[in-house]
């Protein structure tokens, strides 16, 4: 590995081998024709595109083996464009490879480093400049400039303040109040316990005055999942059991991990699964996390029935719903 050992010599660039088209005019003519044919195929592709655009209605389907039924209009446009572009490229490259000079040439490289004298003068010029400005001596200027620059960076941050309101305690609040009726989503109908069979699941929202204009930001906090089990299937402490009604248990549908809708219910195991990151909650144990990245159970909504037998919330959620945030536990 040391330097005295002689390395194997560089034999230099291998000799250039000429192509047939370089010396045979017939071969060169053939290559020229091939290039022209490739460009010709491209032109046909453009024709296909134009024909598809103008003459094929967009509701015609054709059967193509392997691909199944395909929309003829879309397919014609796409294939026409693909052919028209692809064969321009093929033609150009075939031209370059068969008819343009294919002998590799050598160019020289120079080290980027400048000659020593230039480098010295350059460094000196920088030093002189810095010295003339007094960068080294006048530390008051340096510091005050640094402070001014730092402060001026605050202005864009300040000016962006009006991007949105302060969160206040909005993240902790939902529309659910004591006595709010549960209504189906979709449908917006009040429901009775008897509407839900054992083993069934339903998505509900709080009843509001103008359900036509329910903001999405409310759904993002209010969505609740009702699940009905046989009462003996629960494995809950007395407090939690009291929050259910005739085997109906209500959880926030917004995942406590990252806020996706926890929509997959496995009837056999009584598990709720979030399709985003597979956090799995056990319905029989108050949505305890049994798998996945979620760190907290889904908040449970305390439900009961009103005088007419319609399901209502007895209390609002006792904790914020949805993903965690810094000040979540503070209030």
């Amino acid at each position: 590995m040391s330097n005295e050992i002689e390395a194997i010599k560089d034999p230099g660039l291998p000799a250039h081998v000429h192509r047939k088209a370089d010396h045979d005019p017939v071969a060169a003519k053939r290559a020229e024709r091939q290039v022209a044919i490739l460009f010709g195929i491209s032109a046909l592709g453009t024709v296909l595109l134009i024909v598809s655009y103008i003459f094929i209605p967009d509701d015609v389907f054709i059967f193509i083996p392997v691909m199944g039924n395909q929309n003829a209009h879309q397919l014609g446009l796409g294939l026409g464009m693909a052919i028209s572009l692809f064969f321009i490229g093929m033609g150009a490259i075939h031209w370059a490879k068969t008819l343009m000079p294919d002998q590799e040439v050598i160019a020289h490289r120079h080290e980027f480093r400048s000659p020593e004298s230039d480098r010295k003068e350059f460094v000196q010029a920088v030093k002189d400049g810095a010295g003339a400005a007094g960068l080294g001596r006048r530390s008051l200027i340096k510091r005050s400039l640094g402070a001014a620059l730092g402060l001026s960076a605050l202005s864009p941050i300040l000016l962006l303040r009006d991007l949105g309101p302060l969160p206040g305690n909005e993240l902790e609040k939902t529309t659910w109040k004591s006595g709010t009726h549960l209504v189906t989503d979709p449908g917006n109908r009040r429901i009775k316990a008897s509407d839900l069979e054992v083993g069934a699941v339903a998505q509900v929202l709080p009843e509001i005055e103008d359900p036509e204009h329910r903001p999405l930001s409310d759904i993002a906090k209010d969505a609740v999942l009702l699940i009905r089990l046989r009462p003996d299937e629960f494995n809950l402490d007395a407090d939690r059991l009291a929050m259910t009604h005739e085997g109906i248990i209500a959880f926030s549908k917004i995942c406590s991990h990252m806020g996706c809708a926890v929509a997959l219910y496995e009837q056999q195991t009584k598990h709720l699964l979030c399709p985003c990151h597979q956090s799995t909650f056990d319905v029989t144990r108050a949505a305890k996390v049994i798998f996945g990245p979620a760190a907290r159970p889904l908040p449970q909504l305390d439900i009961t029935v009103d005088g007419e037998g319609y399901l209502v919330a007895r209390n609002p959620f006792s904790e914020p719903v949805g993903p965690s945030f810094w000040e979540r536990d503070s209030r």
Partner: peptide, 25 residues
């Protein structure tokens, strides 16, 4: 000029063509 220009220029059309083909099918 000309080899690399022709190859690189041609290659742009090939990439575009392949993407259009994928998008069609």
């Amino acid at each position: 000029m000309p080899v690399y220009m022709a190859k690189a220029g041609g290659f742009f059309f090939i990439v575009f063509g392949v993407i259009a083909f994928l998008s069609a099918v």
